[in-house]
Simulated assay, not measured.
Amino acid sequence: MNTATGERKRPPPVKVLSGQLRTAKENRGKADSGDGWSVKLGKGRSLAVSLVWMQGTVVEVQIDRNTVLLMDETGTFGVQGVNSIPKGKPCLSQGKYVMVMGVILAVSPEPVIRAVKMADLSELAALHRRMWKLEVEELQQLLA
């Protein structure tokens, strides 16, 4: 815990796919761990996460509801709080390929995260899209 501000330091974001969040389980009774969810990695392994890093294509923007719907190769996921993200406005156009870091709010029926940071990756979207699943798998193998 940071005694100056009274806040706990968050662990770094974990790269995940929306399909993995759909099957995540909430870590009940472990509020002090800072890791609110367990994401299944396969082979019976799981990883505790609170802050996630995701990438996807903007499918729908609802400025009035402060949300955007993104889609990665495993499905769609919602992102809330997009209107208050610094430099987030350029990301809020249908068809853009973006990265988003955020806190998991819900996993079912569709994953929803509260955005902390967003960035437009559209300029090199083809490369980012190809590499994303490999980046997710590599990081998760290192962390598990």
Rank of each mutant, 00 (worst) to 15 (best):
V82L: 01
G56S: 09
V82F: 01
G36H: 04
Q62F: 00
Q62L: 08
L69D: 04
C91S: 09
W37S: 03
R65F: 04
G34F: 03
S46D: 15
K40L: 12
M71C: 07
E73A: 10
I85L: 07
V61K: 09
S93G: 05
G56F: 02
K87M: 10
L51V: 11
G29A: 09
V52H: 06
D35Y: 05
L92C: 11
G95W: 13
T57G: 00
G75Y: 07
Q55A: 13
A31S: 10
K40Y: 11
S46V: 08
S50Q: 14
K89E: 15
W53C: 03
T74N: 09
Q55H: 08
N27E: 14
A31D: 13
I63H: 06
S33N: 04
S38C: 05
G29P: 13
K30D: 12
V68T: 07
R45K: 15
L41E: 02
S93A: 13
K43R: 13
T76I: 04
S46Y: 10
T76Y: 04
V39G: 05
S50G: 14
T76S: 13
I63P: 06
G36P: 08
S38G: 04
L51N: 12
I85T: 12
G78N: 08
V49Y: 01
L92V: 11
W53R: 10
G88Y: 08
L70N: 07
Q55W: 02
G78F: 02
K89F: 05
G78K: 08
E60L: 08
N83M: 10
V61P: 07
V59K: 14
G75A: 09
S38K: 11
T57K: 10
S93P: 00
R65V: 01
T67Q: 14
V39N: 11
L51Y: 02
Q80S: 15
A31K: 12
Q94A: 13
A31R: 12
D64M: 09
S38T: 14
V39T: 11
V82W: 05
R65Y: 07
V52M: 04
Q80D: 14
R28N: 08
I85N: 10
F77L: 14
S38H: 07
V82K: 08
L69V: 13
G81A: 11
V49E: 07
G29F: 06
G36F: 03
V59S: 05
R28S: 10
I63C: 00
K40T: 09
K40H: 12
I63W: 00
E73Y: 03
N27L: 04
L41W: 01
W53L: 12
D64W: 03
K30Y: 05
D72F: 03
V79E: 08
R45S: 11
S38E: 15
L92K: 12
K87L: 13
L69E: 12
V39Y: 10
W53Q: 11
D35H: 10
V58A: 04
V52D: 06
T67H: 02
G78M: 04
S33V: 02
V58Q: 05
G95Q: 14
G95R: 14
L47Q: 11
S33C: 02
K30C: 02
S46T: 15
E73V: 05
L41S: 00
V61M: 05
A48Y: 02
A31H: 10
A48L: 09
T76E: 15
K89Y: 06
K43P: 00
R45N: 13
V79Y: 06
R28G: 06
N83E: 11
S38D: 15
